[in-house]
Amino acid sequence: MRRRYRFSKEDLELLLIALPTVVWYILFCYLPMFGIIIAFKQFRPLPDAGFIMSLIKSEFVGFDNFKFLFATPDAWIIFRNTLAYNAVFIVLDIVIPVALAIMISQLHSQKLAKVCQTAMFLPHFLSWVVVSYFVFAFLSVDKGLLNQLYKALGWESVEWYMQPRYWPYILTFLHLWKGMGYGMVVYLASISGIDISLYEAALIDGSTKWQQVKYITLPMLKPIITIMFILSIGHIFTTDFGLFYNIPRNSGPLINVTQTIDVYVYKALMGMNNIGFSSAAAFLQSIFGFITITTANWIVRKIDPNSSLF
């Protein structure tokens, strides 16, 4: 017969430690889910009524708020840009941070390794608003550093904010520059946890550095790489609003290469003052993200059950 479980002192300590996190998730993650109802209503603030009463009395419009995202002539451009940028970001956010983490782990000088790690991690803490002014200082037509350099070399100035063909590369570079430090720290922490005796045994067998990376480091990083890939897939229908809105400085000629779902929803919200549109778009993004992350996890579990997220 199974013994009856008794609540122990250790269980109480663990419960008290977990309680703040549980309360935080309930208050900020689960209770706000009630707001999903806004996506199905024509929300209008009523005079002398609070938010809850205004929401309850607002007209129910069903799926009308969802139609605006697909009825617009720019729907193809919006979804194309969102998926294309994220596909590139997902691949580069794995390849480049892993490569940097491996290179830094091979440095003999710990001081140099810490300096490089700090320098690459620092942009992660900068606001996109601040970064946009840095970019403008480089790309401004009359006072930009690049155009000043072009003039010194006798070349013609480039109107960067009027030339859409440059911006997929600019946005990709800025995304990597700002985010690669965080990913590198994650993979570097995993590398530091690898048993050093594996490298010592490989060194005795006469393996080179590349062979050690290929047959020890990369296989040991496979689980964390897979988890980061699955989590990235879950955000494939969302984009970094600050990157795609602040950096191009809302330039009209760049709309075809910078317009994403989040930027379009923000402009629709500001133009039509209908939060039902933004709620419907966010709800769709959550549904699509849930489908993609579960599908990716299912595929990974079929290939390698030990590397799946759940």
Rank of each mutant, 00 (worst) to 15 (best):
F288A: 07
P223F: 06
I275M: 15
W160H: 02
K267T: 03
G183I: 02
I38H: 00
W76T: 10
I225C: 14
P32Y: 02
I78Q: 03
I230P: 00
G206Y: 00
G179I: 01
H175A: 07
M33V: 13
V300P: 04
N246S: 13
C116P: 01
Y150A: 14
W167F: 02
S54R: 10
N147T: 09
V88Y: 00
G50H: 03
Y5R: 04
G50M: 10
K111I: 04
F138S: 03
L309C: 11
P45R: 02
V213D: 04
N306T: 10
K267S: 08
F241P: 02
V91Y: 07
N256E: 09
Y30G: 07
T226I: 05
T294M: 14
S307M: 15
V158F: 12
P123Y: 07
D195R: 13
Y182F: 14
G276Y: 00
A152P: 00
A282L: 04
I236P: 00
L174Q: 08
I191R: 08
I191S: 06
V88G: 00
D74H: 11
W24F: 15
E10H: 11
S207E: 07
V158S: 01
G252N: 13
V141R: 13
Y166A: 11
V186F: 00
V185A: 13
A202K: 04
Y264C: 04
S279F: 13
Y245D: 08
H108F: 10
Y187W: 02
S197M: 12
K267Y: 05
Y166S: 02
V115W: 15
W160S: 01
P253F: 01
T294Q: 10
L46K: 06
F310K: 06
L218G: 06
P47K: 12
L122V: 15
L112K: 12
T217M: 02
V263W: 09
E200Q: 15
I204F: 11
L153E: 11
A99L: 15
Y5I: 08
V61P: 00
I26T: 09
L14N: 10
L19Q: 02
R249H: 07
Q259C: 10
F134L: 13
Q42P: 01
T260A: 06
N147A: 11
L27N: 13
M180T: 13
S190M: 01
G50A: 13
V98C: 05
C116G: 12
